[in-house]
Design a protein around this nucleic acid. Structure first.
Lengths: 150, 150
DNA sequence: GAAAATGTGACTCTGAAAGATACATTTTTC
DNA sequence: GAAAAATGTATCTTTCAGAGTCACATTTTC
């Protein structure tokens, strides 16, 4: 399967951010699932790490649901990414091969270090953007398209 | 399955780079497969895009095999990455959902743009490193470990 | 107490990549 | 020129992480 966890997590957060602006009530997993075209159980599982990290606040019981855990301008996309994919490295290493020569012997260690460094670049790039930025950007795209179509 | 194409492609290139230093004959897919702990057919498939891009030179027939297509200090890891994963984006987008509101309607376009920008950061990071750098780094790791163990 | 939500465990399903096999083709070597 | 050894390529099966589903205990509101 394609790994769409980051995409999904970001979409959920965008929906919650927009709801947050209006001071709306918490959104239920059913509502979110409908908007994301998936099912409520999957949404609830997706929310677990986001909730653990404090990015979303979940309310149990009737009239419960999920809302932003803190203002959208204090949530970075890097945080959302980390919640969505957990500890999974950016790239998977190939299984340890024959320690044939001095070079291949440490290829695993080298690749892991390389992956970690590039992943840091990714997180730095995502860390520059807040959820609030994303909402603004999304609105800009919408306005642009509407203008283009008259 | 875990996607280990980049890791594998890099390992192949490292093996070829080391062989290249010694002015050795082209390495057969069987040799490479043995060192990578996989099978020759898979290695040959892996070499196709690398060969198309000129990073490796393949020689057909008996005594044939693969060698570097150009000096290791003129091959970047970014090029290897592009060959290994093709056009597959860094992150998969979730399927288009209900165009519920102004925000979610363009979430797909926003996510694609975000992915492309971060991917550029990744390629920039990989573009700074040549295959020759990697070989040096690998040797450094080897020397360090040997020193540590006496 | 009924209703409506979360939280969670135990599943099955999906699909891209890995792996395997086969064979036509090319080139070297004897 | 035939055998050997390699690539190139097509077809098929296997793997397995993540997607999706179902069920239900628990929590809270009305």
């Amino acid at each position: 399967m394609l790994d769409i966890r980051f995409s999904r997590a970001l979409q959920v957060m965008l929906l919650l951010a927009v709801a947050d602006e209006d001071g709306a009530a918490p959104r239920s997993s059913s509502q979110l699932a409908c908007e994301l075209n998936t099912n409520p159980s999957l949404v609830r599982k997706l929310l677990v790490p986001l909730s653990d990290a404090g990015l979303v606040a979940c309310v149990k019981g009737r009239a419960g649901g999920a809302g932003l855990g803190r203002p959208a301008d204090r949530i970075t996309l890097a945080e959302i990414y980390r919640c969505a994919v957990g500890d999974k490295p950016l790239w998977a290493p190939s299984p340890e091969a024959e320690p044939a020569c001095q070079v291949t012997m440490h290829a695993g260690a080298y690749f892991a270090a390389l992956t970690a460094e590039v992943e840091e670049a990714v997180l730095a790039s995502l860390g520059d953007r807040t959820l609030a930025d994303s909402v603004r950007e999304l609105r800009r795209i919408g306005a642009e398209r509407r203008a283009r179509q008259g």
